[in-house]
């Protein structure tokens, strides 16, 4: 196929997700869903000295949603919690490095939104308004 959408890096993360699984004693956790297409991710985070010391995710859905979450876990491992919680959507879109239609952007940021919900929940801080429950039609649990 002569296009970049499903290029090697993305498919590698999809087939061999990094940091896949769950943590026995997470400091915070959250799950996110895109009811429109059925993408789901669950993220567990352990925090030590104000940084993300361990992160695991599980889920199922399209290649973009799962690969993006896998990439995200690599991106934020070791980051200060505040920095990870402030990560802009563009960071993960850049990381994917592929053209995304508006519909696929929702797939791409599902993991990031779920991570933000987990971190803010863990810190007892309010979720930024743009990640509110009906933003992008994503729902958090």
């Amino acid at each position: 196929m002569d296009d970049e959408l499903y290029r090697e890096n993305l498919m590698d993360h999809y087939r061999h997700p990094r940091n896949h699984g769950t943590l026995e004693h997470p400091d915070c956790e959250a799950e996110g869903k895109n009811p429109l297409c059925g993408d789901e991710v669950e993220i567990d985070v352990a925090v030590a000295d104000g940084r993300i010391s361990e992160i695991r995710f599980s889920g199922n859905g399209c290649a973009v949603s799962q690969a993006a979450t896998s990439m995200l876990t690599e991106l934020v491992a070791g980051l200060p919690v505040g920095e990870a919680a402030a990560l802009p959507s563009q960071a993960i879109i850049d990381e994917l490095g592929i053209p995304l239609s508006a519909m696929r952007v929702k797939c791409a940021v599902l993991g990031l939104g779920t991570l933000k919900v987990a971190l803010h929940r863990g810190a007892g801080t309010p979720l930024p308004a743009e990640w509110g429950a009906d933003e992008d039609e994503l729902v958090w649990g």
Partner: peptide, 14 residues
């Protein structure tokens, strides 16, 4: 198989 329908539709679009 277990390929997500969105992935199928996107590849078919190509």
């Amino acid at each position: 198989d277990d390929v997500h329908p969105h992935d199928i539709a996107e590849i078919l679009d190509r």
